[in-house]
Simulated scan of single mutants.
Amino acid sequence: MGAAVLAAFFVAASAVSAVQPGSIDVDVELVLAVDISYSVDEEEARRQREGYVAALASEDVIRSIQGGPLGRIAVTYVEWADSGFQRAAADWTVVASEEDALAFASQVAAAPLERGHYTAIGAALADAVNRIESNDYTAPRLIIDISGDGPQNQGLPLDQARALADNAHVVVNGLPVISADSGRWVRPVEVNLDDYFRDNVITGPGAFVLPARTEAEFREAILRKLIIEIAGALPSPGEVDPFLAQRTGRAP
């Protein structure tokens, strides 16, 4: 990324930081940041979105929301790819009931499916931080839930994107979508994507990686991840990656 573009990211972040705090209290501010680059074919991109829609409308997620101190969260669903491609399929919405959850899920499902070429994880994180800092909400927990099927190949360096999240007290959790086969679900990658997300993407107290390797596992991972994030819990020992205790100083 050129120096001028990089500078623009930090100017934007600084400007957003000056915005007055939001006036609507919620338990969690959650950005669902979903990879929609061309490494995911159109059929599988639609199935990926359907997995989020099903999870958002599930009884378990709704119960988790209603079990919080205020019983409501603010959530937005953002699809991303290139460094200049981050689009909200559903903008910030307060979800406090089954009706709210179903309406938000329907909005995500109905949004046009647009794609981008590259995988700019850093730019997606910077965009998500800006969305959190510029919204109309306040919450004790700020979370970016980012999925991806490969390592970054364009855009803002990940160490700088993570610094933006750390400075804004935003936790970044990762959902790497992993496959050894080409074409069916996602393209194969040349790195260990679990390790890549642990070492380069996630950040913040309690941050974790929950990988998915099949379509069915992807749907289950989304559901579990949302419940964990909304409830403010930790993954179970069978789910958690071995780096969690090292990053947080807490045993799984």
Results as ranks from 00 to 15, higher is better:
120 A>R: 03
200 N>V: 03
246 Q>M: 12
177 V>P: 00
99 E>C: 08
206 G>L: 04
136 D>T: 11
41 D>N: 15
40 V>G: 02
202 I>T: 13
209 V>F: 07
143 I>G: 06
206 G>H: 06
15 A>Q: 14
74 A>N: 06
172 V>F: 06
29 E>K: 05
9 F>E: 15
79 E>A: 08
150 G>T: 03
130 N>S: 12
36 I>G: 09
177 V>C: 12
138 T>I: 15
65 I>F: 05
219 R>K: 15
106 S>C: 08
171 V>E: 07
7 A>I: 12
38 Y>W: 07
32 L>S: 07
96 A>C: 03
205 P>D: 12
4 A>V: 14
139 A>I: 02
53 V>H: 08
214 T>F: 01
251 A>D: 08
154 Q>M: 02
144 I>T: 14
245 A>R: 12
151 P>A: 15
184 R>S: 14
89 A>S: 11
125 L>Q: 06
200 N>I: 02
168 A>K: 10
92 W>D: 04
223 L>F: 11
191 V>K: 14
143 I>F: 09
243 F>E: 13
140 P>W: 09
167 N>T: 13
105 A>G: 11
228 I>C: 03
183 G>F: 09
138 T>D: 08
189 V>D: 10
250 R>I: 13
141 R>K: 15
140 P>L: 13
113 L>V: 12
154 Q>F: 02
77 Y>P: 00
47 R>T: 05
131 R>D: 00
127 D>I: 01
94 V>K: 07
83 S>T: 04
115 R>M: 04
222 I>M: 13
137 Y>F: 15
66 Q>Y: 10
125 L>C: 08
235 P>C: 13
102 L>T: 11
